[in-house]
Design a binder for these strands. Structure first.
Lengths: 237, 237
DNA sequence: GTCTATATCGCGATAGAC
DNA sequence: GTCTATCGCGATATAGAC
């Protein structure tokens, strides 16, 4: 079912313009006088379409099984044109990751300020799991060396990741102070654990089981993640 | 550090004979009269060496990045010889998985009978995490279609997996009855969650952090897995 | 900057001698 | 059953015309 038929070339480009309102784009294009330079806009839109295709394929097949030919086919352009935008497959994946970091920062910045830290953390995990269940979370096999090297060399990605991690880290510390989060667990461990939920294979298992909706799966994993598998006294709230 | 230098060809073969005492081998060789057929023994030992190498490489690089040439080099035989034992790369991985299932059944069967079900479950998770931390847990990217098809077509693997799952499932139900395991969580969800700990990326994160020993990491993840991240009343035990 | 066509190469799998 | 040598294919990346 997923494969050889040419996948509607024009659609991806259009979607990339209308959809994805998350992070505001075209800042650079909007400042150079009144004329945003249509050319630059088109170029930006095409790059967005590329990144969107990469993200989808990365989520569907992972980095190793994703081919540059597929990306080009999904965007509807020639492979050689792709390489004019991104000099390598690794850079393609890196751009997709930068985009995800950007979406994450936008999501975190727009959480209700009044929410309790523990609820912000849960919202984050729900969001990440939702992305994975809907095939939007790029999965980079953590073992590929060339890809990792390329990623940690990418300052935009790395600084974004650090900023996001710092923000989440503050919430973790706050949640520990207000008594809603386990104080025996080191904040860094909490952070890693939350990140790991974004690629937890249990999501795929449950989805394959077909007995639950995506939302049900998310609540199940949220419960096991925060409340644990052991029996617990009925919560006071 | 990991790579191009030819990796000590002879060693793997010898280790395969002396090490790996877990599941008893050579049953077939031992029955045909008094003479176990040295030839068959050597052949069996070589196949064990192959499987051991595959398991290690599978754990180190994953299925996609593992090459058959590497396996042959690590075992110390020619690639063509490998293909006389296993007709494809997928069969190679399948054999490694069958071996792991076998080890798991042996481990489960030799847990102290007197142990409480909840402790049996924790022991299992500890064992799986220990395997992953020491590079013995093969990681099969759950996305590869041809590999999955090959695996579920492998009756030995599938039946073994079902047997193991049934056994664990019984413990889960018992642990829920005796009040040590959360009764609101469906047994199948518990099972999937436990399995997922075997390939939880949080292990790699913590190991990369370098701040904890393997045993410490295991206890940390056991705690977050069973007790959750949320604050909890001091346990009564 | 986009295209078609091609270079280059790594990897799974085989041929055929011994 | 083991070896050396090679095929065949698919994938990344590039050349060169427009």
């Amino acid at each position: 079912m997923p494969s050889k038929s040419a996948p509607a070339p024009a659609k991806a480009s259009l979607d990339a313009i209308s959809l994805n309102p998350s992070p505001p784009k075209g800042l650079r294009a909007a400042n150079a006088a009144l004329k945003p330079s249509f050319k630059a806009q088109m170029l930006q839109a095409r790059e967005d379409a590329i990144i969107q295709a990469v993200n989808r394929l990365l989520a569907e097949k992972g980095f190793d099984l994703m081919t540059v030919d597929e990306v080009a086919a999904e965007v509807g352009i020639a492979k050689a044109s792709l390489y004019k935008h991104f000099p390598s497959k690794e850079d393609l994946a890196a751009a997709a990751m930068v985009h995800m970091i950007s979406r994450a920062r936008y999501f975190l910045d727009h959480l209700p300020i009044s929410a309790k830290p523990i609820d912000k953390l849960k919202s984050l995990v729900r969001w990440m799991m939702g992305l994975q269940l809907t095939g939007q979370m790029p999965s980079l096999p953590s073992q590929n060396s060339s890809l990792r090297a390329n990623l940690i060399a990418n300052k935009v990605y790395l600084e974004g990741l650090i900023q996001v991690s710092d923000l989440i880290g503050e919430w973790i510390v706050e949640a520990q102070k207000d008594g809603s989060l386990c104080q025996q667990t080191q904040p860094i461990v909490v952070l890693y654990t939350l990140y790991s939920r974004a690629c937890d294979p249990v999501l795929e298992f449950l989805k394959a089981g077909g007995q639950h909706t995506d939302d049900e799966i998310i609540e199940i994993v949220i419960a096991t993640c925060f409340d644990g598998l052991s029996a617990r006294q009925p919560a006071k709230s």
